[in-house]
Amino acid sequence: MPDSTGLGGLRAYPLARRGMMMTGLVSGFTLATQRVEARAIHTDTQGLDAGEARIPVPDGALPAYFARPAGKGPFPVVLVNEEIFGVHEYIRDVCRRLAKAGYFAVATEYYARVGDLSKMTDVRQIIRDVIAKAPDNQYMADMDATAAWALQHGGDAGRVGVIGFCRGGRQTWLYAAHSPHLKAAVAFYGPLGGTPSSIQPQTALDVADRIRCPLLGLYGGQDPGTPVAMTREAEARAKAAHRTVEIVIYPDAPHGFHADYRPSYRQADAADAWARMLAWFRRFGMAPAG
């Protein structure tokens, strides 16, 4: 039967010419953190087109997962920035949840050049050997490539947004400052400060006054990695530069409160944050048709 979606062939996109570290995505849930899988949300693919893809980049192709409503579109695009644990089942499910809401969601394994997250279980090793060695300029270029891929396969160029979790929250701030094509951005927690390096020269706080689209930040009041005072400083810097930003603090929530497969999950706060994200997208021109 002919493929009416235009995406089927991409599932067999050739492997990277220079040998990316990962040839596929993480299966199941990440092994790098204690799991509470019985509580995890599972979203089916009924009414969706979903699966793995390869995102063409200058040195090969990066593995990714996409989910979008069945049909021709065009659909508003949401780029999903992963945690430090790879594009595993939780991130895939986030893509499917977005697709059920009418979005074309795609999560790329941006760290594939550096290491295979599917085989790593120690958080300190992941940060030291993978995350800290990934250049921000490469990450931004790969996000641009992911957006271009989505626009070629049913995405709407006039409705592109970005979200991110944990480290992906930081990348969401950076991409909001990098890309002139975004309608809206939503950061689910993640570091705002940190120690700059030659390949990661700026923190999210550094670029807060340069974001190019409205940004919603969703943070836990009990997250020691991102003190409330720092989130308020980022908000103040953005507003002083006349940027549109809103920071929501969940007073009793820890880091990772949206990650339903982990002990940090807080159901009520996660549901509220998700509703706020969808409302933010609608408010700033990202609403699905119909």
Score class of each variant (00 low, 15 high):
264 S>W: 10
110 Y>L: 14
69 P>Y: 15
40 A>I: 01
155 G>P: 02
127 I>V: 14
177 A>M: 04
10 L>D: 11
278 L>V: 02
44 D>G: 07
178 H>N: 02
7 L>E: 13
16 A>Q: 05
148 A>L: 11
5 T>Q: 15
102 G>N: 08
32 A>Y: 11
79 L>C: 06
189 Y>C: 09
15 L>S: 12
126 I>W: 06
143 M>E: 05
205 L>G: 05
245 V>N: 06
287 A>E: 15
278 L>Y: 04
93 D>H: 10
125 Q>W: 05
157 A>G: 14
284 F>N: 11
169 G>F: 02
167 R>N: 11
99 A>F: 15
32 A>W: 07
225 G>E: 06
267 Q>P: 09
276 R>Y: 03
236 A>C: 01
19 G>L: 09
265 Y>E: 02
83 E>T: 01
214 P>H: 12
42 H>Y: 12
87 V>A: 13
144 D>R: 07
21 M>G: 09
126 I>C: 07
263 P>F: 04
11 R>A: 15
188 F>Q: 03
144 D>V: 03
182 L>E: 07
77 V>G: 08
167 R>I: 00
19 G>V: 04
223 D>G: 04
103 Y>V: 05
67 A>E: 06
95 C>R: 00
216 L>F: 03
223 D>H: 05
143 M>G: 15
163 I>Q: 13
67 A>S: 04
102 G>A: 08
150 A>W: 12
23 T>M: 02
8 G>P: 06
207 V>I: 02
59 D>K: 10
41 I>F: 14
61 A>S: 15
185 A>D: 12
182 L>Q: 07
164 G>P: 11
83 E>W: 14
136 D>P: 00
232 R>N: 05
207 V>E: 03
223 D>E: 07
25 L>N: 03
158 G>Q: 14
20 M>H: 03
95 C>N: 02
132 A>H: 07
257 F>W: 07
35 R>V: 09
248 V>I: 13
68 R>A: 08
136 D>N: 05
249 I>N: 04
172 T>V: 01
215 L>K: 01
264 S>A: 11
206 D>I: 00
75 F>Q: 01
75 F>P: 00
96 R>D: 13
130 V>L: 08
223 D>W: 04
230 M>K: 03
8 G>Y: 09
239 K>G: 02
67 A>Q: 03
66 F>N: 01
66 F>V: 00
210 R>W: 03
116 D>Q: 10
170 R>S: 06
178 H>A: 03
232 R>H: 09
61 A>Q: 13
55 I>S: 15
203 T>V: 05
199 I>N: 02
44 D>S: 11
161 G>R: 01
52 E>M: 13
128 R>D: 15
16 A>T: 01
263 P>W: 08
197 S>R: 03
199 I>G: 06
162 V>Q: 04
45 T>L: 01
179 S>V: 05
200 Q>W: 02
171 Q>P: 06
158 G>K: 13
190 G>E: 05
37 E>W: 11
280 W>Y: 01
183 K>Y: 09
157 A>W: 14
149 W>F: 15
246 E>T: 13
84 I>H: 13
142 D>V: 03
